[in-house]
Nucleic acid binder design. Structure first.
Lengths: 212, 212
DNA sequence: GATTGTCAATACGCAAGCGTATGGAAAATT
DNA sequence: AATTTTCCATACGCTTGCGTATTGACAATC
């Protein structure tokens, strides 16, 4: 009954695989190489089995990916609920979100690669839904601060764009996440720019008003 | 010089294709479906020929993509030089850049899809170089305003992240670019937040200071 | 007008990757 | 103990897409 799979080297006892094993391995692939890199035979090899196993647990490749993404989404929602939405003060809540966004979590990697592989309809569907969800609670934060609905919409879109952009920039520039002091300082800088009371929105300090 | 291919239906006369025709058609595919969707036989069909033609002009698929990306990069640089870098006032220059960034140009679509297909080394290479280039002149703008080098670095990274994020958000939310009045208003909002004199950086209006 | 060069069509080989069919071994059930 | 269920291996067929080889047509040049 002993086995040597599930992760590559975990010689625990486990007689057989379950869908969760496949989904977790799939998320690992998605996080690092994207949805298009999800190949059943490859993942099977990682799990120490062959295709025969896979098609017993899932009907096809798409089924696997959809299940994996569902798992990712649920997991992500759980984290947000626990660590962000639980903060009552909206300023602190926003700052917490920004800090969380800069943490090197697999969840972020997955989101970033989903942005890439959105040519698949089942990917873009999840992506859009998750994005809308996230924008919603960000908007709520800004409304809690005192922003009007319109202002909060724009500001949350801006804040979220920064998040998405940050994900890409770190990948593009380092090829990897680097969670060092520079990142911390940058997040502070960003938060300082994007978290402030609504009154400061109308305060235009730049000479742009007179020009454009 | 006239022809009947290049685009799908242009019944002009043209005896034969040249590399440029292939590169333009390739950029069209990249802009809409990404690098991984570049298939020689498909593009050949668009151009009204078969593979036989392709392998006369290029050695292989990678060769085509690299050439197409070079063309894209050169073209993009030309636009930036003409429309952005030519503006002497740094505030106006920044604002011009933001406005340009929201225009529905093919160049932006291509950049967005490159962010997706960066698993290919030859893509990530170009991507990184272009990104560094762009960050450089953005940083220069902020330094011209009076930002310190460190401040300008962070601020340009922030501004550029917004750009990248915006590209993705529009795709994710609408599936398409929508250059309407909403976009215009949003850009105004963003510019108001991200273009200001360096003194305002230290002005912390939010209650965050006392909390975190 | 014969030859050479340019550009493209057709046919083929080959690898990757999905899905199916079938059989087999171990475990659970009866 | 026999049988059924669970889980997986092996082998096969099929499609897509790259790259090559060969041939051909039209133009340019000699």
């Amino acid at each position: 009954m002993m086995k040597q799979n599930k992760a590559v080297n975990e010689n625990h006892k486990k007689k057989s695989l379950n869908p969760k094993d496949w989904e977790l391995a799939t998320l690992e692939v998605i996080a690092n190489q994207g949805v298009s890199a999800v190949a059943v035979e490859t993942i099977a090899k990682v799990l120490g089995v062959t295709k025969g196993s896979f098609y017993w647990h899932f009907t096809n490749r798409k089924d696997l990916i959809v299940a994996a993404l569902k798992r990712w989404r649920d997991e992500d929602n759980k984290i947000i609920k626990q660590r962000v939405l639980s903060v009552s003060d909206p300023y602190k809540r926003l700052k917490t979100w920004f800090l969380l966004s800069s943490e090197p979590l697999q969840s972020h990697l997955i989101y970033a690669t989903l942005l890439a592989d959105r040519q698949h309809s089942y990917v873009s569907k999840v992506l859009k839904e998750v994005t809308v969800e996230r924008l919603k609670y960000l908007q709520q934060c800004y409304q809690d601060i005192g922003y009007s609905e319109t202002q909060a919409k724009q500001q949350s879109l801006l804040a979220y764009s920064v998040y998405v952009g940050y994900l890409h920039m770190t990948k593009t520039l380092h090829g990897q996440f680097k969670h060092d002091t520079n990142v911390e300082q940058y997040v502070k800088h960003v938060a300082g720019q994007l978290i402030h009371p609504p009154e400061s929105l109308s305060i235009e300090l730049s000479p742009l008003n007179s020009d454009l």
